[in-house]
Each structure stands twice: as structure tokens, then as C-alpha cells.
Amino acid sequence: MINKIVQSMAEAMAGIKDGSTVLIGGFGAVGQPNALIDGLIEQGAKDLTIACNNAGVGRVGLARLMDLGRVRKIICSFPRSSDPVVFETLYRAGKIELEIVPQGTLAERMRAAGAGVPLFFTATGVGTKMAVGKEHREIDGRTYIAERSLPGDVALVEAWEADRWGNLTYKQAGRNFNPVMAMASKLTIVQSQHIRELGELNPDHVVTPGIFVDRVVHVPYGDPSGF
């Protein structure tokens, strides 16, 4: 019997190695897997590369992981937030590396990783400093730049419902980066608000099929708050 549902956070986080690339879902607080981020803090892996749309708020969650000196590099589109104090302090002190990526390129780099596409061309960033050092190609009269895929060793994902095969649904804008990150990683760990019996989820409503998911932990926390 396949059962991807694990009973403890320690089990969910088992085996994450130092030096891993970790993709973290969410857009602001919505769809952000806070319990898994806390689990990663507890688990202890360091020298991490984190890909996430934002670079942490206040001193909790991702900001705390950075504050503990566990993040070598952050890949994001928008390092500012309502309170990016930890990131800015580390960045000014030269203690964290930053790779700024246009938001759509960030999402596409992960989808490409999930689809087995190592390199693709996009018009986004042409003529800007994002294009410096990248391969340029003219296709049907328009100039594009090459972008590499962004595979993760680990993805931390938040879902609304999950079953023991790892099929997932999401709630409203909580979907955001979660499905592409689930596709892009070798080890996809999910926190889900609800656990459903196998067969209970309507196959028409499954957004992330279980093939992209490795572990599910039940975290019924309610509604997101604070950005």
C-alpha cells in the first residue's frame, strides 16, 4: 500500500542534506508552508540555496532560517517585503548571496526543471541587466535570452487537501508557486490542511497529481495572516 502521509515533522524532514537547493512555495503568507519551514529550521540542514518569491518577513520562518546563518544563497524576484530586516542586514554584510530573477522566469525555470527542459528562451529581460552574460538568439525576428532550468533537491509545498497517494488541491490564491515547485524537485514535502481518503478527491479537481509528491504531513492551521 502506498502511503505518503507521515506522522511527524521529523519524518517529513528526514534526509535533507547540507548544501541542498530548497524551493519554498507561497506568495506572501498565502500558500506559504510555515510549519515545514519551521521543520527545516529544527532539522538542521545548512549551506542551503533557497528559491522563494520573497526573502522573508520579520524574524520568523524563512527570515529565521537566514538569521541562523543556514542560507548561503537566495533566489527570488522580490527581496523586499513589509519587514525584510534579516535579509537586508545579511545582504549588506555580504553574508548572503542574492540572485534576482523576474517572477515569470523564476516560475518557468522551475516548470522547465519539472518537465525535463534544461534551457529555454524568453523575451523577458532582453536589453536589461538580467540579460548580461546570457546567450541571445533571434527567433522569427524577435530577440530572446536563454535561461536555465531551476531544479530543487527539496520542495516545501502547502496544499489545501491531500490523500495518501500525494494528490493535492489548493485553496484560491494559495496555489501560486506550489505546483511548479512540487514538479521541480527530487523530494517534495507537503503540508496539507486536510487529509482525504483515497478516492475522495475528485480526479477532475486534483491540481498536483501524486507522482510529483513524496511526503505529506497534516497541518490544519486555519487561515493565513500577516505578509
Binding site: A55, S77, F78, P79, R80, F87, E88, Y91, R92, L98, I100, V101, P102, Q103, G104, T105, T122, A123, T124, G125, V126, T128, M130
Partner: peptide, 15 residues
């Protein structure tokens, strides 16, 4: 700029 935030602006402008 110490840590510029591009968000989706480049995608929107080009796309």
C-alpha cells in the same frame, strides 16, 4: 541598488 526588487515587471513589460 543594494537589493533591487523586480517582481513581475520585466515579464509584464515584455509580454
Amino acid at each position: 541598488d543594494t537589493a533591487p526588487a523586480v517582481g513581475g515587471a520585466m515579464d509584464l513589460a515584455a509580454g
